[in-house]
Design a protein around this nucleic acid. Structure first.
Lengths: 118, 118
DNA sequence: AACCTATTTCGATGAACATCTATACGGAGG
DNA sequence: CCTCCGTATAGATGTTCATCGAAATAGGTT
């Protein structure tokens, strides 16, 4: 059920085939990354020095309506890539590095790409 | 235009925000990964010992029509994750490790994950 | 050339999605 | 308490997408 658990249990794509359940979970996360706006939002949050970004800062970075940004943030939060915290009137979003790390590991190549070996 | 070039030019998400063009290119690849069937197909090809998989083998692994599998293979090929080669009556698909590696690098975390080490 | 099999393309359909406007919620300040 | 500001939710709309069945293409065989 927990997406992060599914990611942790899923072997790298190059090691063995995913079963249907693993694939369904992993696909949800990749689908969340499959939108240009969400990718940019994620990179804004992930690369921010303090680690936190206010929704208003994100909204300013796009020519999209505020509800649209809020929708994308919700999607990223639902798949475990972001968390949010309210302080006073503002909501701050943070990266969940574990999820990103698991995704990266999932796509990792075995060792040497070119040679044959065996 | 070339997706692999865009991936190569895109910094890790944790380093700096993606611009609109980079995000659009990267999103196309992640969108291709955002389907459970395609993820399983990719993992079947990527984890296969010889590196090659015949379409008929992939079709056997799913309860989907053969045209549907062909459609998914085309999507994976269009974003540069797979290549294909025809030999005799059969078409064999191979992983493009460079693309997968670039994606993995894109999601890489800066240095120390959360706790352990040093 | 006619044929068989494997694969791709075409056309259609129903579901999912990105986006918008309008509205609701939640805290801060008068 | 009422209002303002920032954010989230609801409802609506046009587009994209996964999937199927049917038809077209391509390579090898007889």
């Amino acid at each position: 059920m927990e997406l992060l658990e599914i990611l942790e249990c899923s072997p790298p794509l190059t090691r063995e085939p995913l079963d249907a359940e693993q694939a369904a979970g992993v696909a949800r996360v990749f689908k969340a990354l499959g939108d240009p706006v969400r990718l940019r939002i994620l990179s804004i949050v992930a690369s921010r020095a303090g680690g936190e970004v206010c929704v208003c800062d994100i909204t300013d970075a796009f020519e999209l309506s505020q509800p649209t940004i809020s929708h994308h943030l919700k999607v990223l939060k639902e798949v475990g890539l972001l968390t949010s915290e309210r302080r006073a009137s503002w909501v701050y979003y943070r990266l969940v590095p574990e999820t990103l790390g698991e995704l990266s590991a999932l796509l990792t190549l075995p060792a040497t790409p070119p040679a044959v070996s065996l």
